[in-house]
Amino acid sequence: MTRLLAAEALKLRTLRSTWGFGLVAVLLAGLVTAGSIGGAGQQDRLEAEFQFQLVLDAAFPAAILALLMGMILVTNEFRHGTIARTLLAVPRRARFVGIKLLTGAATGAALMLVTLVAVASTAVIWLGLIDVPLELGDGLHGAGRAFVGVALAGLLGAAIGGAVHSQVGSLVGTLVWIFVAEPICWALLGLLDLDGVASYLPAAALGGVVDSSGEGLPFAGSVGMTLAWAVVAAALALVRTGRRDIT
C-alpha cells in the first residue's frame, strides 16, 4: 500500500498541473485573506472569531480546488490511457479505488497546507502592520477545521472521478451542480419550507465543514454528511471501475 501511495505522490509531483494548482491555491488564499483583512473594520479585526474566520474564508476556494484535483487525479488515468499501466501494478480494482481516495484526501490536505502558509504569511504581515495581535488558538482552530474540510473535498473529488471516469464530464458536472443545480434545489426546497433539507445536499454539506457562519448543519454533522456523500460516490466508483473493461 505504501509503495502505491508513493507512486501516486510521484505521479502528482511529476506533472506541471499539480504545481499549477498549488500556485493558484496560494494566490487565491493570499487574495482572499487580503480581501478579508482589508474589507473588515478595525473593531472586527480585533474580535475573537476574526482570525478563525480568516483561515476558513481561504479554505473554501481550497476545497473547490481539492475537489477538482481529486477528480483529475482519477480521470487523468482514463483520459491519457495510463489506467492500463496503473492496473497492471494494482490489478485489484477495489484497491485501486481505495488508493485514489486516500491520494485525493492527502492531496486536499497538502493543498490546505500551502493555503495555510499563504494565509499565515499574509495575515502575519498585514495584521502586524496594523497592530492587531495574533491569536494562535483561533487560527489553529480554523486550520484544523479547514484541513478536515479540504481533505474531505479531495476525497469526494476522487470518488466522483472514479464514478464518472470522464474528465470533462466530472469537472463540468460538478461545477454545474455546485454553482447552478444545487442553488436551484435550495430555492425549490425553500419554497416548500424544507430549507433544513438543503443542508444535507453535497455542496451545502461540504460548505458546512469550512463555513463558520453557523448556518446549516453543525460541523460534525457537515463532516458526517460529506463523508456519506463520499461513501455513495466511492461505492459507485467501485462498481463502475470494477466492471469496466480497459480496452
Binding site: 507512486a7 511529476t14 506533472l15 487523468n76
Partner: peptide, 27 residues
C-alpha cells in the same frame, strides 16, 4: 509479468524517465 499494450499508456506531460520511475515505485 511485463506487458506492452497497443495503445500508448504514458502521460504526455511526464518525462519518459519519470514515467518509468512511477512504474518502478508502484511495482
Amino acid at each position: 509479468v511485463g506487458a506492452l499494450l497497443e495503445t500508448f499508456d504514458a502521460h504526455p506531460g511526464r518525462s519518459g524517465r519519470n514515467h518509468l520511475r512511477v512504474l518502478a515505485v508502484a511495482g
